[in-house]
Design a protein around this nucleic acid. Sequence first.
RNA 1: GCGGGGGUCGCAUAGUGGCCAUUGCGGCAGGUUGCUAACCUGCUGUGCCUACCGGCACGCGCGAGUUCGAGUCUCGCCCCCCGCGCCA
Length: 436
Amino acid sequence: MLDIKFVRANPSVVREDLEKRQDKEKLSWLDELLDADAQYRKLTVESEALRAGRNVATKAINEAIKSKKSPSEIDGLKIEAAQIPRKIKQAEEKTRDLEEKIRFYLMRLPNILHESVPFGKDESGNKVLRAWGKVRKLSAQMPPHGEWLEKNGLAEFSRAAKISGAGFYFLKGDAALLELALQRFAIDSLSKKGFTPVTPPFMMSRAAYEGVTSLDDFEKVMYKIDGHDAYLIATSEHPLTAMYKDEVIGEENLPIQLCGVSTCFRREIGAHGLDTKGIFRVHQFNKVEQIVLCKPQDSWEWHEKMQANAEEFFQKLDIPHQVVSICTGDIGIVAAKKYDVEAWMPREQKYREVTSASNCTGYQAARLNIKYRIGKQGSQDERKEFVHTLNATAIATSRALRAVIENHMQEDGTVSVPKALLPYMNGIESIGKKTA
RNA sequence: GCGGGGGUCGCAUAGUGGCCAUUGCGGCAGGUUGCUAACCUGCUGUGCCUACCGGCACGCGCGAGUUCGAGUCUCGCCCCCCGCGCCA
């Protein structure tokens, strides 16, 4: 969410941003928010005055008791004082309503976009920035990746459906190894760049989850555990960012660079088109994620670095890809700027999203109340400000695996293992059976 | 899951209905002293009002209740520690 202090001080910045997004409903919210905030502060002053009055009355009673005033005099004071709590309660109810209203708007107003975010009303407005590698043409004999996996005994889809429903899969043999190799490759590369590998809890409480995602996601994306205040994580970004909730981080401890490794669970897996069978759109996959918490002045540089890391992985896997900057209409409410890497999928003759890198600036930090300390602790110039949070996919195994299979399929029907993964493959250089 | 103990301002501690949340350590600022240091004083949770000096409110794991008044009493919940049970 936006920092209410920021909204108060810069209403025109927020307004211009909403205009850029062409979001009329939220534009009207802004005025209501500012209005509610002004009322809230006015009422707070009033109810604090009431409390101050109560404290005075209470003190008078105490002194009367101590100085042994007559019981009737004390009772008189008590009867008088007894009027005050009711008034306080009334004022509190009103301020609570306003607080809820303010929170409602703040939780739904989007982050302020970076000026470089391209304008557009949906994903068709995303801007291609660059492309890498030579794309391959569709050869007549290339099977859909799901079929290929199944034929080669490397995956099971119907048995997965039998026990778990649609959108699940068993990976077997060399495919299972390849999946783990992709993860180890990403983890090792990131470790060398200063990211600490972390395996997080796969479930989070509602309160913590509200800090990192938009409210719509609770209805659409996340699995709720029945009977418990727990949601299965949709990405390790969520626990790894939320883990610093309500903390003040010393300036000297920034940046925090984490490499999240987890399974990800998603209810909505989108429209199915070509090659429905397979591992591209699934309810569960594994992902290695880059997370950074840093000072605001450093976040744009980090955003580029993390994006460069993502591109580097796909270069090392020798998978042609393009980079797009997500436009105003497609970016969602949390990120200030977002890049996707889209890998070439030969079967579809299309680029498809495989990674996503977002600078969330102070938006998650404000919700989670994650600050950092500027100036020495206890000194006069000590200040606290919200950190900036960033997340970027390194490897999402399901999608990367499909990209590897399709881009490295040989004439003989086998898939050659990219060189970068060989150290993790027990000497296996190609997977799948040769077609006769 | 059951039983017992606990959660107080960065850390450590005191506080069983009114004493404006105690003390120590650490940190910051200033001062004093012949100085790789000691000592003294002040400051060291959050929000709001104010041009400023400053003031007020909130804050003792979270929430509700009793009361004129709650760190302190009552109820619900969360987390940590010890023991038992169960278990990969």
